[in-house]
Amino acid sequence: MIASDAPDKAAAKGGAPCETETGYNFAYLDEDTKRMIRRALLKALAIPGYQTPFASREMPMPYGWGTGGVQVTAACLKPDDTLKVIDQGADDTTNAVSIRQFFAKVAGVATTTRTEAATVIQTRHRIPEQPLRAGQILVYQVPIPEPLRWLEPRETETSKMHALEDYGPMHVKLYEDIARHGRIATSYAYPVLVDGRYVMDPSPIPKFDNPKLHMNPAIQLFGAGREQRVYALPPYTAVESLAFEDHPFDPGGVDAPCALCGHRGGYLDEIIADDAGRRVFVCSDTDFCERNRLNAGDAQPVGFGAERSA
């Protein structure tokens, strides 16, 4: 599961300038803990979509900040890896910056903001726009791994429902959406059926990203620290978003160009641009947006001055 085609370290941009912390094992966790997590990950990869329990450790960050993802990343990292961390698609938000610095300090690995240069990408709630390739690992931070929780609060019961493929109630949620809103209004954490077997919560990614889960050449790992579960999608796994025959899955998305790079068809954030309440849409994936602008000769769009640097 460890990527072999790591790019040249020198090619990786944005490596943290700080020294590696001494006194910690490589990537913070001790080797026995990493081995335990790797075993859980191997089991998770062997049973795509199945929530594998693991002995989640206390991490030096609060629950909800990606303790599960950080442990999975720590278990996957090796010294020649290049790490990218995104939060809602952005490389420059607090969560992304602090986790990137954390691993730069305790593992001394190269970091990058470029999707194609990274061998391990930890993400909160997005899949990068740039298609992933074989050998890359995408690590998701998961708050609640159980897609059936909304319908059945008992863990003993939901694990039985998974074991027996008793997934009828899952459609009740979608039925309720249509009855109340006229369409399936679930817009993130949209439930999927993995390899025709397990119903899985893809973490709170927008449903716009659900098609990218399907037949993805990268390894996709999901870590839920508080809930002590990992699950996984091995490369090229069939992932189907649940729907009704007469209300098929619709990935949604805004039909507007990005105000910064002009790209259409990506996932956009809505931003209030001035005191008059004017709104613009910009790419949620900051690296993707920056690449587009560099390729186009870095033309500044009119009327939106706030440059977002990676």
Binding site: G168, V172, Y175, E176, I178
Partner: peptide, 19 residues
Amino acid sequence: VSAGGNIGEPMMAVGARRY
């Protein structure tokens, strides 16, 4: 869950997929 969802659940459980 709405009345319709309650009545529909047993049907969806046996594979009804037309809303």
